[in-house]
Simulated scan of single mutants.
Amino acid sequence: MKEIKSILVANRSEIAIRVLRGASELGLRTVAIFSNEDRFALHRFKADESYLVGVGKKPLQAYLDIDDIIRIAKENDVDAIHPGYGFLSENPEFADACAKAGIAFIGPKGAVMRTLGNKVAAREVAIKAGVPVVPATGALPNDIEEVKRMAAEIGYP
């Protein structure tokens, strides 16, 4: 993996400011994105550079525009993208798009998000890894008497 010298924060407001400050303290070049409605937002001015994202889109859709965020990152020679929280931070397609574009995603890989974002799959991974888990059932049947039996078998808190 190549050295990270620049970071784009794919978020806004408080969380973007915190990530930008941390990146600046590490000596990284910082890039912010902003929707048209956020053009006067503080996070835009705390970054070394800032670019309009999602032209013509409403604010939430602008910050969810994966293709435009990747375009901005590539056009401005960004090494890594930090998603902050919310928006695209738990979107495996975004993590995959960053990897495909050769940009480091600061967060888990898309495959990890897909697995751990699914409670059943995450539980199976934990069990296979030997992690103790709370007793539970699989999918519940439609038969209420069977559901009661299963609950009694596991026990109640």
Rank of each mutant, 00 (worst) to 15 (best):
P135M: 03
L28T: 03
L52H: 12
I69P: 00
A129G: 02
K148D: 09
G110I: 06
V134L: 13
A73K: 14
A121I: 09
A10V: 02
V147I: 15
D65Q: 02
R21P: 08
D38S: 08
I69Q: 00
S50M: 05
V31Y: 13
P59T: 12
R39K: 15
P108F: 08
L60P: 09
A47F: 11
E14R: 03
D77F: 09
V147N: 07
L42W: 06
A97E: 06
I127D: 05
N36W: 12
V55Y: 04
I103F: 00
S50G: 10
G117P: 01
V9P: 12
A152I: 02
G86T: 09
V131P: 11
G107S: 10
A41H: 10
R12C: 07
A121T: 13
V120W: 03
D38G: 10
G130A: 02
T115D: 11
E14D: 04
N142P: 08
A151I: 05
A97S: 02
K100W: 13
A16G: 05
K148R: 14
E49P: 10
S6G: 07
K109A: 14
K5W: 06
I33P: 03
G56W: 01
D79A: 07
S6K: 07
I17H: 09
F94S: 02
L26H: 07
I69D: 00
I127T: 14
H82F: 05
I17Q: 13
E37N: 11
N36A: 14
A111L: 12
G54S: 03
S89V: 00
I17S: 09
L88G: 11
I33R: 13
I106W: 07
L28K: 11
F87C: 03
D38V: 02
L140C: 07
G155M: 05
G54R: 06
K5M: 08
A151H: 03
P132L: 02
V131A: 13
Y156A: 05
K2L: 10
Y51V: 10
I72E: 14
G107V: 10
R29K: 15
E93I: 07
M150R: 12
F45A: 09
A23L: 00
N118I: 00
A122M: 10
P135G: 02
K58W: 11
A16R: 12
N118H: 15
I127F: 04
G27F: 13
N11V: 13
P141F: 01
A136G: 15
K148G: 05
N11A: 06
E14A: 01
R114Q: 12
F40H: 13
E124P: 07
V55Q: 15
I154S: 10
P108L: 09
L64S: 13
D79N: 14
R12S: 06
E25K: 12
R21K: 15
N76D: 04
R149H: 06
K46G: 04
K58T: 04
K100F: 04
S89F: 12
G102I: 00
A129M: 04
S89L: 09
A101G: 11
L88F: 10
R18Y: 01
V147R: 08
